[in-house]
Amino acid sequence: MNWKHLFGKKNKAALRSSDPEWWREYFVETQAIDRNQPVSSFMFKVVDLETTGFDYQSDRIISAGVIPSMGYELYPAQAYHTLVRQDFIKKDGVQIHGLTMRDIQSGIEEVDFLIQIVEQLKGTIIVGHHIGFDVAMINAGLQRHWGLNLINPVIDTAYLYKRCYPIKFIYDKYVNQIPSLDDIAEEFELVFHDRHSALGDAAITGVIFLKLLRNLENAKVETLKELLQ
């Protein structure tokens, strides 16, 4: 899957006079990110979404987990987690994340969720596994309601993994595929929080991120720019 076209616009993005105040704040602070600063100086947000399916145009976000991370630490106490109310739900998705219709109905409105997640991501670097999809889902929502797209720098742990262990992609089982979160978690023996809940997956992604980050630091990756390569 190729999500590039969705955040390809980010460099050209600019504030419009019609943009709401919460977006202006987000935009200014996020745009100010200086990619030449050391990796350890940034606030990262590890994001995982649960959705009704894998089509970012027709499917919807039903829950989100966000864990802040800075300086090789995760801050679970400052984690953000919410359910999002959606009237439209495909049956098969429920199986994976174990959320029932009633759970979903107890969630907050999508509009409120989008405003909250934008606030969460303000001035931070987004981290996630196959994060392109999650960003695309959020952008699809932002587009529907306000015609907006996120402008955060984005780090995909699947890509970082490939960068840290290139050898596995030549000789090993991942010849033509990028390992799933489950695969990496199993390899690292990290299945110690609830899997398949947004916050549980975010926590695992977070630990994998810290490990890979340390790995890259040892390979002399110092600035955000180098990390984003």
């Binding site: 987690h81 107890s106 969630g107 929080h193």
Partner: peptide, 14 residues
């Protein structure tokens, strides 16, 4: 927020 399992992570740590 009236969310189920809002603190699933904290619960696990606990």
């Amino acid at each position: 927020m009236s969310n189920k399992a809002i603190n699933v992570l904290n619960d696990r740590i606990k």
